[in-house]
Design a binder for these strands. Structure first.
Lengths: 170, 170
DNA sequence: ACTTTTATGTCAGCCTTGTTGACATTGCTA
DNA sequence: TAGCAATGTCAACAAGGCTGACATAAAAGT
C-alpha cells in the first residue's frame, strides 16, 4: 500500500488501481500525442500534394524493400482499392517502383526510387526528431515503459506483425 | 556504459543514444498502437452510423459539460464547419443539447443528454478496458513512462491545453 | 489438361471528415 | 452606433476509407 500512484507489484500480473479518471487522462494523452506525432510529416506531405496514406506506404516500403502488395495490405489494414490509389500515384510520380516477382510472377515487389528515398528521408527525419526530443525529455526508463504500453495496446494480430517486423526486419 | 539499451543518466537532460532504427520501431509502435486504441470504439460507432469525429465530440463534452463550441474547436483542432456537421447530427439525434449562454448569449453551452451519456459510457468503457489491460500488462513504471513520453510528444499548445484539462477539469 | 485459387489492378460509387470561402444572425463592447 | 465575436449554414472540394464487380495472369490442385 506504499507503492505510490497506481499501486502495484511486479510486471506481468500487476495489481493496478486505475481510476476511470486516470484512464481518461491517458486516453486524452494518446489523442493529443498522436496529433503531434503526425503534425510534422503532414506539413511536408501537404506541400507535395500527398497525404498520410502516402507516408505510410513510403515508410513501409522503405523499411521492407521488395515487399509485396499483399504484405503491405496486411500491415496497413486497408483495402486493396484504397492502397492501390495511393500506390498508383506514387508510381506515376516516380517515387515507387513495382517489379514483377521472379519466383512468383503474380506478385509485385515494391521499391523506393531515389526520389522516393529522398521523400522518406525528409519525412522520417522530421518524425524521428520529434520522437527523439520526446525521448530525451522523458528519459530512458520512460522510453522503455512507453514501448511496453504501446505493444500491449495493439491488437494481437498487429502485435505479432509488429514484433515480426522488429525481429526479422521483414 | 553499463546502462542497458538506450544508455542514459537522469531524467530531464538525459544523454540517450537513439539509433534511427530504435526510433523507427517506436514510430511503428505508435502507429500500430493507435490502431488498437481506436478499434473498439470504431466498431461501436459503426453500428450506430457514427464516426470517430462523433466520438471525440461526445468525449470532450462529457468531460467538460457546458463547454462552448469555441472551446471544443480549439481542443479538437478542426474547422467550425467540420465540427458543426458532427454536432448537428448529434443534436438532431438527441445525444447532445445546446443551451444558449446566460452571461454571454452568443455562446452555446454543450451537454450530453441521457442518451448521449449512455453512448459515451459504452465507448469509454470499451476504450478504458483496452487501456487498463495494456497498463496491467505493462506495470506501473511503464505507465508513468508512457504518460511522460506522450506529453513530451505533443505540440506545446496542445500540451498546455492537455495539462490545463488535467489540472482544472475545465 | 482442366479447374480453382491467388495476386493484382481497375472502375464506379458511396461515406466520413477534413478543407476554403462566403454570408447571416445575434449580441457584446468600445 | 460601429465593429468585433460566437455561432450557424450553404456550397464545393479533396483525401482516403469502404463495397461490389469484373478482368488478367499465373500458380496450384485434381
Amino acid at each position: 500500500m506504499a507503492d505510490g500512484p497506481g499501486g502495484g507489484g511486479q510486471r506481468g500480473e500487476t495489481l493496478l488501481f486505475l481510476t476511470d479518471e486516470q484512464l481518461r487522462k491517458a486516453i486524452e494523452a494518446m489523442f493529443f500525442a498522436y496529433k503531434g506525432f503526425t503534425a510534422d510529416p503532414d506539413r511536408i506531405l501537404e506541400a507535395r500534394g500527398y497525404g498520410r496514406a502516402h507516408h505510410r506506404a513510403v515508410h513501409f516500403i522503405h523499411r521492407s524493400p521488395g515487399t509485396t502488395v499483399n504484405n503491405l495490405l496486411a500491415i496497413l489494414g486497408v483495402t486493396k482499392q484504397s492502397l492501390n490509389r495511393v500506390l498508383r500515384s506514387l508510381i506515376e510520380d516516380g517515387l515507387v517502383e513495382s517489379r514483377i516477382g521472379t519466383r512468383d510472377k503474380r506478385e509485385r515487389h515494391l521499391f523506393l526510387t531515389d526520389a522516393g528515398e529522398a521523400l522518406e528521408r525528409e519525412l522520417g527525419t522530421a518524425q524521428r526528431a520529434r520522437m527523439r526530443d520526446a525521448f530525451r525529455h522523458a528519459g530512458p526508463e520512460a522510453v522503455a515503459g512507453f514501448r511496453t504500453v504501446l505493444e500491449a495496446m495493439m491488437d494481437p494480430e498487429m502485435r505479432r506483425r509488429y514484433q515480426g517486423l522488429v525481429e526479422s526486419g521483414q
